[in-house]
Design a protein around this nucleic acid. Sequence first.
RNA 1: GCCUCCAUAGCUCAGCUGGUAGAGCGUUCCACUCGUAAUGGAAAGGUCACCGGUUCAAAUCCGGUUGGAGGCUCCA
Length: 534
Amino acid sequence: MPAKCPRADVQRVDVSEPDGLDVLRHSAAHVMAQAVQQLFEGTKLGIGPYIRDGFYFDFDAQRPFTPDDLKSIEKTMQKIINQGQRFEREVVTLDEAKRQMADEPYKLELLGEGDDAETAAEGAGVEVGGPEITIYHNVDRSGERVWSDLCRGPHVPSTKLIANAFSVMRAAGAYWRGKEGNPQLQRLYGTAWPTKDDLKAYKERLAEAERRDHRRLGRELDLFSFPEEIGSGLSVWHPKGGLVRGIMEQHARTKHLQGGYTYVYTPHISKADLFAASGHLANYKDDMWPAISMDEETDEDGNVTKQGQDYYLKPMNCPMHILIYKERGRSYRDLPLRFAENGTVYRNERSGALHGLTRVRGFTQDDAHLFVRPDQLEAEVTKVVEFVVDLLRDFGLEQFELELSMKDDDSGKWVGSEEYWESATQALRNVAVGSGLKMTEIPGEAAFYGPKIDLKVTDAIGRRWQLSTVQVDPNLPERFELEYTAEDGSRQRPIMIHRALFGSIERFFAILLEHYAGAFPHGWHPFRSGDSGG
RNA sequence: GCCUCCAUAGCUCAGCUGGUAGAGCGUUCCACUCGUAAUGGAAAGGUCACCGGUUCAAAUCCGGUUGGAGGCUCCA
């Protein structure tokens, strides 16, 4: 369905090309906004960009949209589309833009921001941010401008191109410009495709994802549940789920032992002092469960007669592994030391962030902390990356890529010397390049104490998940004053490597469950009988 | 945490504007047996999430709590 070019200065793009599809969707967003303002007078416009698989538009509406509203909006869109409105581009001055957008406070705000708007919010770049300010008008057959929006464009020549392959999907709240402190707008998500068949295929893809949803499969196959009596985000594993999980853990354990790891065990809670020393109470407290107060005694008047202790559920295992390291003097001959633990940690995730097994409040990390000499860093990280990929392949995952998270120039955000960052980053880069996997460098995404390599996996239906992470950390060894005796008898500080392969065992299980659509490979799924088609 | 929506049998859901509950699947039993997640018959299963309010009367209306869904934000 090639777009016809009515004017010479219009560039021709086919809607079957990715760029063309974006234009189509952004145009559909304009049509949707026009429909909304037609149906609900006084609704103010936010932004309305294209996104993966569709588009959205934010509105400041008098009242939230109901499911019925979505239907009528879709109908009105169809009418507008059938009118065959043209999109007309007008270059305007800032003053003129402000005049035309006088009734649109959010647009005025964007105009006031000028060039900053590009980075201010996802999609804001489609509104302004080009070299000149433009307004796009929808013009009906009589030549009358029926609707306008501040927009960088481009758009399809006629609304007819949106044809029948569009759909208003759902309504949701969204903060203006993505900031939690800002007012919440009503966002409508929609989708648009070149043909009806494409739309149908897209909806089929959504249905397939729903069929594979691990929450549904977990219930249907009797694998795990989240009893309300226990608390949200806290899972229990039923016999069948426990059997599969046990097989996974068993296999990983065998591999770890072969790979030179030793297993350690640590408790779920600790006195506050430990997390004060590690810095977690200073930097991570909001994500930790509230303290458990122990042993405090008071007299009849309520005066404290015996000082109590605060205990915290551990959000991470590292401080406890460090204490194991510190239990005795270490020699350079002992390193690398590799402490592994399937350690259950607890994090106070905000209620709205919880999602099945992939985002929970209590989960088990297949965690390990490696203590290495600086000169062993690169070799050890190489070994870890090979180990990760090898193990994940055992579980049937095939498509991997790496992300190298580095520091950026934003001073004050990072601790450690320039030389340290330079050498650690270079070591990780060498490893990543040497792995032969696709690698992307991401400045500014490092942990505050060091660079990291994250491994992303693509599953059977094309979704990408972050699983493994390998982080270089000289900070905790510093805080806990870790040492080893070097060959020359001097005391040296080891570097620590944090690494998890599955990330969270629960989450990894969920990912595999969806990857295999519930049909785990033969040999380790207990609940399907007979059929070998699996 | 915020916005919107939701909470009825193990599961999926119906129950219009208030008058003490229904279906399909599943389960159990019987029969049949060649029954590919779909053979026939019968039965059991719910203080309609919880707490409070309005009312002669609440699954139904109102408030709160808990839990869930889709987003936003967050995920050093």
